[in-house]
Every structure is written in C-alpha cells, then in structure tokens.
C-alpha cells in the first residue's frame, strides 16, 4: 500500500463533552501515515476518548476532524473479546466486513493468530482459557483481520509481565514496519514509548490537549537500553512532562 502524503488523521481544536464535562477541550493533532504514535498522559486525561473520536465511535461538539483512512482496527484496553466465541472466531469477527467467505475468514484468522504468536492448539480455546498476553494477541489479530490502514491501541498490554510486554511491543513495531500500518498507541509507560515510537505525544492531565511532541529520529533497531534511558530522562526533564508526572505519578 502506498502511504498518502498528508496526515492520516487531523484534529483541529476539537471539543468533546461527555456527561456535561469537556473531556477534550481544544485538542489538535496530526498523525503521519506509516508512523507509530504513542499518546502518554494521566488517567482520565482523555486518551481513550481521543482514540474513540479517531475511530468515529463518538462525535465532537466543536472543532474539525479529518479521517483519511479506509478502515481502522481497534485494540481495546480490556480486549473486549466475545466470551462465547473461540480465539479463531473472535478474530474472524474483525474480518466480517472485509472477507465475505467463511472459509477465507477462518484461514485468515488462523494465519493472523499464528503471526501474533499463538499456537494451533490455542485457536479453538475460549478467551477465558487464555492468559492475559494471549488475549491481547487475539485482540491484535482481530484488529488486523479488519485489514486496517490505521491501528488504534488503547493500553493493550496492561497487566502483562515485562517479558510479555517487550514481546508485544516488538510485534506492534513489526506490524508498522512490515505491513505499512499506521498505529496510534495509548500508554502509561514512557519506556514503551521510547523503545518503539516514532512520535511521542504528551497529553495535559485535564482537557486532553497535546502539550508536548517528540519525534524520535533514530531507528528502533539502534535504540539500545542507554538510548531508551536517556530518552526517558529527556522526556521527564521537559517542563510539560515533569508537571504531568507530578500530577499523575507515571511509573518511573
């Protein structure tokens, strides 16, 4: 797929009110095609709302939203797998719109589950029988089954141990690099951002505005632990982030 030249998503002075409260109050951002953008910010700062707005699950009361993507695949924080469907069937749900044939959907689901690191014996298991990491992989496979040009991930690795988290980060990075997918990834973890992001956007603790943007020019392969630590320190030293850290106590 040929990446488009302009931004894939552009928000200008967007206001979203939920329950009478302005969760997003004048938020602006743009997402470049083929990039991995990490959104960091305090709990309740509007990260999930921003993702839902980009996915067109909610509307805005003011401002301008431009969406230049064909299909979005969303990985929710709580994964939102159907408990009455097996891993394979859950992934197939993502392909219901793009792949009409049941047989083709099944084959695609198995291919994606394998690509996300599940073994064949897990394909027929229900979500309740899978570990948290496996459920996250199924949710990612489901998002990929939608053949998305934009992948939206809302803290999908919460609760995973360090080793699983690192493996999943590599998986997401390889999806962006190998499949040319654009990804917007919400996280609390600055290290996660420093390891795999092309762009890090920091949101204000309230009102959902982007208060800082860092473009990490160095390639992911060249980012050794020293670079990651230095980048975290650099991010933390920025006034906008240190203020956010004081308010929210990010885990560093």
């Amino acid at each position: 797929m040929t990446p488009r030249s302009g931004p894939m998503v552009r928000l200008e002075q967007v206001i979203v009110r939920l329950g009478g409260k302005a969760v997003l109050d004048g938020t602006s951002l743009s997402i470049s095609p083929g990039s991995l953008t990490m959104l960091v910010g305090a709990s309740g700062c509007g990260k999930t709302t921003l993702l839902r707005l980009i996915a067109d699950l909610i509307g805005c009361q003011a401002g301008r939203v431009e969406r230049h993507f064909e299909r979005a695949g969303m990985v929710f924080q709580e994964h939102r797998l159907l408990p009455w469907r097996t891993a394979r069937e859950n992934v197939a749900v993502g392909a219901l719109q793009s792949v009409p044939s049941t047989t083709a959907r099944r084959a695609l689901s198995e291919e994606l589950l394998a690509a996300c690191g599940l073994v064949a014996e897990d394909f027929a298991k229900y979500p309740q029988q899978l570990s948290g990491g496996m459920r996250a992989r199924v949710a990612i496979a489901r998002a990929l089954a939608a053949e998305p040009t934009l992948l939206l991930l809302d803290e999908p690795f919460n609760g995973l141990d360090v080793a699983r988290r690192l493996a999943m980060q590599s998986l997401i990075r390889s999806l962006v690099d190998d499949r040319g997918i654009t990804a917007v990834f919400v996280t609390h973890d600055l290290a996660e951002a420093a390891r795999i992001a092309d762009t890090v956007l920091v949101m204000a603790p309230r009102g959902g505005r982007i208060v800082h943007r860092t473009d990490l020019a160095i390639s992911v392969e060249e980012r050794d632990p020293g670079f990651v630590q230095a980048e975290i320190a650099r991010l933390q030293a920025h006034p906008a982030i240190s203020a956010a850290l004081e308010n929210i106590g990010l885990p560093f």
Binding site: R71, M74, F76, L82, V93, L96
Partner: peptide
C-alpha cells in the same frame, strides 16, 4: 463495551445480533 466493539468493526445489525446480542 462489546456493542461498541461491534460498532468499531462496523458490524451490521444482523452481525451484531448473531455475534453479540443473541449469544
């Protein structure tokens, strides 16, 4: 949350019935 997931994947009413509501 499951209904919103259905909307995120652009499921039709029939698909939402079969996959989410009826079970």
């Amino acid at each position: 949350n499951l209904l919103e997931m259905g909307r995120a994947y652009r499921l039709s009413l029939r698909q939402r019935l079969r996959e989410i509501i009826l079970p």
